[in-house]
């Protein structure tokens, strides 16, 4: 027997219906149903399609998670759910389901921040998180640098994207190159066949930009530069070297992300960087952040790819930490907050 909290976590902020179950820092189940295939032909996530899929997937995914974990539902000590930020209608399905679980099981519900959950998930793989640490979260929906002094109360934004998210840039460049959606894995694969030969721009890295946006990102100019380059090639009737473009684009993104993450940690005198979000699955990003951090005496933690993308386990992991540290649960009137500030760990 263990006195560590058994927590069920629900994630529905975008197109993944995730239900995870953890006991303390131990992952027992991570069931995910994705509607990504339904969005592929639209080239991006369609909110109403995602919301409909969440409703249909919710009960089967909860059942699958409990079965995998080998627990009876009424054994859980608490329910956690992403209450923001994310797509409003999608969040609402998860929040309503979590409240119904809480009522049906007679247990508390924690409405948690999606970004903090991306940080917390690493505890399932690498044990207690060093506090403070700098977290770099990069996905189709977010590109953030956070300073984490206390996982349950102290998350401060250091920088964020001022236009597109990093993952969005991957999707758009993939489309430009005729690669499928979501673009991340396909760009990564194509880039391995090519070398970095094109010097694409690095957003917000000029001396002037650094004064105002030292830890912020911009990927919109990069995306446009890639489009211009590809179109010029097409106009001149030459074939587009997909592998070279992919490698050069990927290098530009990873260069800026890792440079700024390491700079943020060094600036704060922080010795640990945590990387999360779907883009953290990118092989070049993982290698480059490791290389640059090590050179500065900074340690890097990156959860395995399945835990980097959106899932219920990350929500359960944060919920478990909130229970362990005695934080107050949410009210049953808990709203879904599509623009929940990163400083709000639990609503």
């Amino acid at each position: 027997m263990s006195d560590e909290p058994l927590v069920l976590g629900i994630e529905t902020s975008c197109d993944e219906t995730g239900v995870g179950i953890v006991r303390g820092h131990t992952l027992l189940a991570d069931a995910v149903a994705s509607s990504v295939d339904e969005h592929a032909r639209f080239g991006g996530v369609v909110p109403e399609v995602a919301s409909r899929a969440h409703l249909e997937a919710m009960v089967p995914t909860i059942e699958r998670a409990c079965e995998t974990a080998g627990i009876a539902m009424y054994d859980v000590d608490a329910v956690a759910v992403t209450s923001g930020p994310g797509l409003a209608g999608a969040l609402l399905v998860g929040v309503a389901a979590a409240k119904a679980l809480a009522i049906g099981l007679g247990k508390p519900v924690y409405g948690v921040n999606h970004l903090a959950a991306h940080v917390a998930v690493d505890q399932l793989e690498h044990g207690p998180l060093p506090e403070p640490c700098v977290a770099m979260l990069v996905s189709g929906g977010h590109s953030s640098l956070l300073k984490v002094t206390d996982l349950t109360t102290g998350v401060q934004p250091m920088g964020t994207t001022i236009d597109d998210a990093a993952g969005e840039a991957f999707d758009k460049v993939a489309r430009l190159l005729g690669l499928p959606f979501p673009g991340g894995p396909y760009i990564d694969r194509a880039a391995r066949e090519g070398s970095v030969t094109i010097d694409f721009p690095r957003g917000l890295t000029s001396q002037r930009d650094l004064q105002r946006h030292r830890f912020d990102f911009s990927f919109s100019g990069l995306k446009t530069a890639v489009a211009r380059w590809v179109e010029a090639r097409e106009r001149s009737g030459e074939p587009v070297p997909v592998a070279e473009v992919a490698a050069s684009f990927q290098e530009a993104v990873c260069d800026v992300l890792t440079r700024k993450a390491v700079d943020a940690a060094a600036h704060e005198g922080i010795e640990d960087i945590l990387v999360g979000g779907g883009v953290a699955a990118n092989s070049r990003l993982r290698a480059l952040v490791e290389e640059r951090a090590t050179a500065r005496g900074i340690r890097v933690r990156v959860p395995r790819p399945a835990l980097c993308t959106d899932n219920g386990a990350m929500v359960a992991a944060l919920g478990s930490e909130l229970v362990a540290r005695g934080r107050q649960p949410s009210e049953l009137g808990l709203p879904a907050d599509s623009s929940m500030p990163v400083t709000t760990v639990v609503a």
Partner: peptide, 10 residues
């Protein structure tokens, strides 16, 4: 609907 289904499940 999600409330009804989930409550019924529990």
């Amino acid at each position: 609907l999600v409330t009804a289904r989930t409550l019924a499940l529990t």
